[in-house]
């Protein structure tokens, strides 16, 4: 009897998640993200020209030879957009992963141990929160000097507190759950308890937040590059390219294509994050179950 039931439930739960990930928006997001990831991986193979070579006539409009035209120093814009994926996407992913790791570990410690540790960590987080993200990132990046590495460090500093805050509140809710207490009664020390019982149950909302954040990270990274605080010329960075386009306003293609690249990537990650949230959020799951009953 139990066997049959167990199999049924298993099948049903898998079905539920895949169904929520099968919405049109989620599919669009998934396809676009997959497309850009492939572009990033195979950039050296698929770009028609060297993105740094200034071999062509300046400011050519899009044509059969140069689909996206050429820029103010005669570089092929298509090649630069493709290479830009290689710069922005891995950096954004890495950034989000590190921010998530640092933020959630600090948040979990603050939430679980409370008291002075909690106060210290969360007051530092509040300090970061007190400034507008982009301004603070600019200040840090400017004081470190313009380079992609420094831009990433600056963004790491401004983005971990969001994860810390979310993780802390989730841990606060989970640490008094009966299964955590039962574990403590069976002799789990604080770190065992945290890693075995608490964190696995709070990880999915944090992952959803991270997915939603990839888009923001790309935007912020491009923003810093646009302001000249990120990628140093001649690195093919989307934000820096948009900045070039602004200085050559009559040649719309210089800014439009990298802009479009930013737009699609950011949108796609947001779609994916939304769908993932709907699929993993225990509350929306309950709502679905409630309706089913």
């Amino acid at each position: 009897m139990t066997d049959v039931l167990a199999v049924q439930t298993k099948r049903r739960s898998r079905l539920r998640i895949s169904k929520q990930l099968r919405t049109p928006l989620a599919l669009t997001g998934g396809v676009i993200v997959a497309f850009w990831l492939l572009v990033a991986v195979f950039a050296p193979l698929i770009r028609p020209f060297d993105p740094l070579a200034q071999d062509f006539d300046r400011l050519q409009a899009p044509s059969a030879a140069h689909w996206f035209g050429t820029d103010q120093v005669g570089r092929d814009v298509l090649s630069r957009v493709i290479s830009g994926a290689q710069v922005s996407i891995p950096l954004a992913l890495m950034l989000v992963i590190f921010a998530m790791l640092i933020g959630s570990v600090l948040g979990a410690i603050a939430g679980y141990f409370g008291k002075a540790l909690d106060e210290t960590i969360m007051r530092i987080a509040d300090l970061v929160f007190a400034f507008p993200t982009i301004i603070l990132a600019m200040v840090i990046a400017a004081s470190l000097g313009p380079s992609l590495t420094n831009a990433v460090i600056a963004m790491l500093i401004v983005s971990w507190p969001a994860y810390a805050r979310v993780t802390r509140s989730l841990v606060l809710g989970a640490r008094n759950a009966e299964y955590v207490v039962a574990g403590r009664l069976l002799g789990n020390g604080p770190f065992t308890s945290l890693s075995k019982d608490v964190l696995p149950n709070v990880v999915s909302p944090v992952v959803v937040l991270a997915t939603l954040d990839v888009g923001t990270a790309i935007l912020l990274l491009s923003g810093l590059s646009f302001l000249g605080l990120g990628a140093v010329p001649p690195t093919p960075d989307w934000g820096a390219m948009v900045s070039d386009g602004v200085q050559n306003f009559s040649s719309w293609w210089i800014a439009a294509f990298p802009g479009l690249a930013i737009l699609t990537v950011v949108l796609a990650f947001n779609f994916l994050g939304d769908a993932l949230r709907d699929a993993l959020d225990p509350r929306s799951q309950e709502a679905v179950q409630g309706r089913a009953l």
Partner: peptide, 27 residues
Amino acid sequence: GLRKRDPALMRIQMVFQNPFASLNPRR
């Protein structure tokens, strides 16, 4: 508190009220 429980006291075990909350859903 936050210490590990004294092994001698682990001879006391508890069964909680809510069976939907007392088992770790991920294990």
